[in-house]
Amino acid sequence: MKKIAFKVNGVARSYSGNPDMPLLWYLRDELHLTGTKFGCGKGLCGACTVHLDGEAVRSCITSMKSVAGKKIVTIEGLSAKGDHPLQKAWKELSVPQCGYCQSGQLMQGAALLKEKPKPTDQEIDDAMQGNICRCGTYERIREGIKQAAGVKS
């Protein structure tokens, strides 16, 4: 089988299994990067969000063949020391409750800030609409993004 080459959190990787396998399971089962979560398997909840060449994607519906030559960043690689402005804001504002969806929320939020460093409330809501939090931490997620962006509440 043809080898698929790509990078995960800066490390070169290659994969030769079924090219249709979703990236999510590769990250979780093969690399043991379990910070990326399974939530729905259909791109409906955002728990599995990672960056593919800087863009937020749902790894549960991103096939291995589509990551050839790309750079993947997971929550484990978002920052070297867990000190991305969003990670800091998340702790300062005590955003998480159960925490399960927060990897995806942070990755989605980080992609937003890269594109729009000073997002409005509406831009935040639009960007985060695909990420479900059953604990209901949305208000603090919005505040966390604004704090990291230095946007006044």
Binding site: H32, G35, L78, Q87, K91, S94, P96, G99, Q102
Partner: peptide, 21 residues
């Protein structure tokens, strides 16, 4: 006091049932 699990949660290191091996 700060929640003991927040460092792990915010860096993807928190271990849930689905992550247990």
């Amino acid at each position: 006091v700060p929640i003991v699990d927040f460092d792990d949660i915010c860096t993807g290191k928190g271990i849930y049932g689905i992550d247990a091996r």
